[in-house]
Each structure stands twice: as C-alpha cells, then as structure tokens.
C-alpha cells in the first residue's frame, strides 16, 4: 500500500473493570491495523476476540484502556482518538465517522424516514432534502414505502437493521464502522447491501467491518485482521 492510512490502530487494548464483582474482564489486547480510504478492513476472529470492542473503542462508546488510535481528519490534522476530548469525538461523529451497529436506538415516536435522515438533520441539512435522501436509501434497501412514515419500533429484526444501515450510510462518512450490518438479512437484501458498500468504497469511504459470514469477508474485504481472544484473566482481582 502506498496511500497513507486514514486510521491506524496501534497497541489497542480494552478491559472492563467491574467494581461490584471485583473483576477485570479483558476484551481486546494489543490490536494493530490500518484502515485506508476506499478500502474495507475486516476484523475476524472467534467470539470473544474483542472485535466489537475495537469498533466501540474507536467510536468512544468504550474508553480504550491503552494504545493509540490515530485518525487523519479531513482537514489534514492528525489526532489520537484515545486522547481526543469529548467535543472532538462528537464533532467527528457528526462530520466524519459513522457507525452501524446491530441495534437500533431511535426516538420512540420518530418516523423511519426521519430516523434515517437524523445524521443529515444534525449537520443542518434542510429537512425536506434530508428526507428525500432518506427515502432513496430506504428504497434501495427494499423497505416498503408504507413503512417510511411509521416509527421502526415494530419492525422485524431485518427491517430494523436496514434502517440502521441507511442511517449509517446517509451522511457518507469518511470512515464507516460496520458491526455485523447484514446479520439478519435475506440473501437478496444482503446482495443489495454488498452493492452499496462497494459503491461507497468506490466513492472513497474507508471501512472497518465485522461480518457474520466469511462469505462477505471474501466478497468485500481488502484487508483482513485476525483477532484472538485475549489471555484469560479469569478471576483476576482488581488491583
């Protein structure tokens, strides 16, 4: 690779200190990899290897325990996401870094198209334009039009997942984190998602993904990083 990575994860570790139980639970340990513009890096490894912890650590949903996460921002600046303050992270979330998780958190009463358009609302995009864009994405993801104005609360798992995906893709982030984005989708819809991810790669989006199926890694990944479960620290007492 000749290009500079957008994201470099260096010596990332995450462990949880459970005060109540007096335990330290290791989750990821000494993870190193790079993510490039227009390329998809897939994290693979058995359950318990801490794949999701890495994504959440990058997004600051988890506080990394050690290591560096160097991000090259669009303005040319470089910052360590481990050290960045809350406002820098919030700003990157709004402008540059997207995260599609397996779970949909949305306001209880919000219409699906508004749930999807939310990242654009936050950027101050005109509401009608944002909704228009949301509808296009929902259509591409085979969500029936009659559901667009309904809150997604009652949707099936697969539908919710697609709403989540649409929301993650709509703002065209520079760096997109994907945590099993197709876990509960039928093959046809999965193909759609694959097409969309490929299109985003062509547009230059850097992606870091965890896939349910080895098949998807095959189809989409440019780089593969294998994680192993961290050394057992069972019953280790809190220092």
């Amino acid at each position: 690779m000749t290009a500079e990575p957008i994201l470099s994860v260096e010596g990332f570790s995450k462990q949880f200190e459970l005060h109540e139980q007096g335990k330290i639970i290791p989750s990821s340990s000494n993870v190193n990899f790079d993510v490039y513009a227009g390329k998809l890096t897939a994290l693979i490894g058995p359950t318990g290897a801490g794949k999701s912890s890495v994504l959440k650590g990058i997004f600051r949903t988890y506080l990394p325990s050690s290591g560096r996460i160097i991000y090259h921002a669009v303005n040319g600046h470089t910052l360590d996401l481990v050290q960045a303050d809350d406002y820098q992270i919030l700003d990157l979330r709004r402008q540059e870094i997207g995260f599609v998780t397996q779970f949909l958190h949305a306001l209880p009463r919000q219409a699906t198209e508004d749930v999807v358009a939310q990242p654009l609302f936050q950027r101050g995009v005109n509401r009608d334009q944002a909704r228009q864009k949301a509808r296009e994405l929902l259509e591409q993801l085979n969500i029936p039009e009659r559901l667009w104005s309904v809150p997604p609360a009652t949707f099936s798992g697969g539908e919710k997942q697609r709403v989540n995906l649409a929301r993650g893709l709509i703002a065209k982030p520079r760096l997109l984190l994907l945590d099993e984005p197709t876990a509960s989708l039928d093959p046809a819809t999965t193909d759609r998602v694959v097409e969309m991810i490929q299109a985003m790669k062509i547009e230059g989006t850097a992606m870091l993904a965890i896939f349910h199926h080895p098949d998807l890694v095959e189809r989409l990944a440019d780089n593969v990083v294998t994680l192993t479960p961290p050394l057992a620290l069972d019953n280790k007492e809190v220092a």
Binding site: F16, K56, R60, T61, Y62, L63, D86
Partner: peptide
C-alpha cells in the same frame, strides 16, 4: 462524565 453512550455502555 463523558459521551452518553460511553457512560451507558462502558
């Protein structure tokens, strides 16, 4: 104090 999702998840 921190980002809300971090406070709730970690």
């Amino acid at each position: 104090s921190g980002l809300t999702d971090q406070i709730l998840e970690d």
